[in-house]
């Protein structure tokens, strides 16, 4: 079992990884339903953003409450409110790695928009307006960074340091 010999922080990281994948799927699915895959209708995009954020909050809340109840029921609840120095160290290292990736994603997004503005017949996503690309790009970058953050935490917990 993946939760064997793991503390509450690692278990929440597993849940976060799972819901990040689910939210990415949810957002991608919502994007497909927008007219012509990408839509420049600001209301539709804002609505999709709101739905995605609300869905992620609901999913995370339910999952974390269920985990806490399960741990309480099994008498394994000593570490629910406990974050020790190792947890903090692992989170700090994972956060540093995740934010390197976030910086890279933001640079790529703006580089793409810059290239689209100055290069005629730019080959990548030629039919997507820059603002739409930026909005969807920011959402996917955030999800990717969240995934990297939690996956990196799990890796370090499994590696033990």
């Amino acid at each position: 079992m993946i939760f064997k010999d793991s503390n509450f922080s690692e278990q929440t990281a597993w849940i976060s990884v799972t819901f990040t994948v689910f939210i990415a799927w949810f957002y991608a699915n919502g994007m497909k339903q927008l007219e012509g895959t990408f839509s420049s209708d600001a209301d539709q995009i804002v609505s999709l953003w709101a739905q995605t954020i609300i869905a992620s909050i609901i999913f995370a809340t339910i999952a974390f409450i269920a985990l806490a109840i399960l741990k309480k029921a099994t008498g394994d609840d000593d570490d629910i409110a406990l974050i020790d120095e190792r947890d903090e160290l692992i989170e700090a290292r994972a956060t540093r790695w995740a934010y390197y990736n976030l910086s890279t994603c933001i640079i790529i997004l703006f580089f793409h928009i810059f290239c689209q503005g100055i290069i005629t017949n730019y080959p990548f996503f030629p039919n997507v307006p820059p603002i739409d690309f930026l909005i969807h790009g920011v959402m996917f970058s955030s999800l990717l960074v969240e995934f990297i953050l939690r996956a990196s935490q799990i890796y370090r917990y499994r590696k033990a340091a």
């Binding site: 503390n7 000593d78 190792r86 917990y157 590696k159 033990a160 340091a161």
Partner: peptide
């Protein structure tokens, strides 16, 4: 390990990691 973890205010997994030589605790710990 659980008793020691409780006395120290850390998780049991941290004690296991220290014992296995995979994690070096802070000076305070």
């Amino acid at each position: 390990q659980q008793e020691l973890a409780k006395a120290l205010g850390v998780t049991r997994q941290t004690i296991a990691a220290i014992e296995a030589g995979k994690y070096s605790p802070s000076l305070e710990v």
